[in-house]
Every structure is written in C-alpha cells, then in structure tokens.
Amino acid sequence: MNIYGVVGFKNAGKTGLMERLVAEITGRGLTVSTIKHAHHSFDVDQPGKDSYRHREAGATQTLLASKTRWALMTELRGADEPPLAMLLSHIAPVDLVLIEGYKRDRHPKVEAFRAETGNPLLALSDPTVKAVATDTPQELTQPQFDLNDTQAIADFILGELGL
C-alpha cells in the first residue's frame, strides 16, 4: 500500500493541504483514503442515536451502515492507542493513503510549515520528512514548495511513489 504523510505543528496548514491533495490526486483519477490522528478525544456519534446507545452500553465495536456509507467505531475501553500499521490494515485497497499526523512514525512525509507559528521545522531533524510546503522559503536540503502549490506537492508525492 502506498502511504505518504502530511505533518507539522498546530496551525501549520496540514488539514487544508490534505484536503487540497485529496481533491488534486483524485482529480487525476487515482483513489485516495486518509487517516487523521487526533491528539484529543473525539466523537463521531451523536448522543441519543441508536449506535451511540450501543456504544454507551458497552459495545467494543459498533458498525453503522446505510445505502450511502458505513462506519465502524471501536472503543478502546482503556487499551493503548493502536499503532498506525494496525489502522492501515483496516483500509480498503486504494492507490494512496494520505496520513495527517503520526509525525513520529517512519513513513515518508511532507511537512506543512507556517513561519508565523514560531514552531521549529521538523525537517531539520527528521529524515522521513522528504519535502516542506511552506509560506516562507527556508534554508533546507529537502525540496520545498509554496504551501498553496498543491499541484507541485502532489506531483512530488506521486513521483516519490512512482504513481
């Protein structure tokens, strides 16, 4: 499975870049799935709905299905957060899986970087960061792209993967 990450600190532009990359790459006829790492608790279900009630009653997994989509929710119930490799095993085959976050994992990545945030560049110390998408040119050995040049960033990722 081809995977590529988008990493960076908070407010660096990761989610916007992910959204644009998905649109750009699927617009080229390739299939893309995404994985997003959250550093906080989140809920995709709504209180009072049947699936929420199943989960709240103690179900470890709840699968919700309709004619337009299905979703599988898994409650960890105190277990450790699953590693990225395990999550990837649940993704149906596609041309590319784009991963937002998981900056400590060892897959290839593009770093989204906005100078105004004052955060350090991950690319300076992480060899898995293969390029930087930035709003301000930086002194780097890795290729860098304008943060808004989605086509060039997509070309780079697809070229790296031979797609």
Rank of each mutant, 00 (worst) to 15 (best):
T117S: 00
L163R: 08
G101S: 00
Y102E: 04
L84E: 01
V22H: 06
R77M: 13
E139A: 15
R28I: 05
G162N: 06
T68G: 10
M1A: 14
R53E: 14
W70R: 10
A79W: 11
H37K: 14
G48V: 00
V94Q: 08
L121Y: 07
D43S: 15
H90S: 13
G13V: 01
R114C: 02
E116W: 13
R106C: 12
T136C: 10
R55F: 06
A12C: 11
H40D: 10
P82C: 02
A154Y: 00
E100R: 07
A38N: 12
A154C: 04
A85P: 09
E100G: 07
I35L: 11
P83T: 05
T15H: 10
Q142I: 02
E19R: 13
K10T: 01
D149W: 11
V44K: 13
Q61Y: 12
D105T: 05
F42E: 02
S66H: 01
V44W: 13
D45T: 08
R69T: 12
A152Y: 05
R20W: 11
H40W: 07
T15E: 10
S66F: 05
D135K: 04
V44H: 14
I25V: 06
I35G: 04
A115Q: 14
D95E: 01
E111C: 01
P47S: 12
K49T: 11
A79M: 13
D80H: 13
F9A: 07
A79P: 08
G8P: 00
L124P: 06
V94N: 07
S51Y: 03
V110N: 03
V44S: 14
E19I: 12
K36T: 03
L147T: 01
H90N: 13
G162W: 02
T74G: 06
Q138H: 03
F145Q: 02
A112P: 00
L122T: 02
E75N: 12
M73D: 01
G162S: 06
L76Y: 14
L163K: 10
V129K: 00
R114L: 08
H54I: 01
P143L: 00
Y102F: 15
G159T: 00
T150L: 10
L161A: 09
G48I: 00
A115D: 11
V110D: 08
D43A: 14
H40E: 13
G27D: 03
L30W: 05
R114F: 08
A133Y: 02
F9Q: 08
L158V: 03
P83H: 11
L87G: 04
R28L: 02
E116S: 14
D155E: 08
E81W: 12
P83Q: 09
G27R: 11
D45Y: 06
S66N: 07
G101A: 06
T60S: 13
S33K: 09
I91A: 09
A57E: 06
A71N: 06
T31M: 07
D135Y: 08
K36A: 02
G78M: 04
R106S: 15
A12Q: 14
L63M: 14
T150K: 08
G29W: 09
T141Y: 00
L96G: 02
A79V: 10
A154V: 03
T128Y: 15
D126L: 08
Q142T: 08
K10S: 14
K103R: 15
P93I: 04
H107F: 15
T134R: 05
D146C: 06
G16S: 15
T117R: 13
L64T: 11
N2L: 05
R104Q: 15
R77T: 12
Q151N: 11
Y52G: 10
T62I: 11
L147N: 04
A112Y: 07
P137M: 03
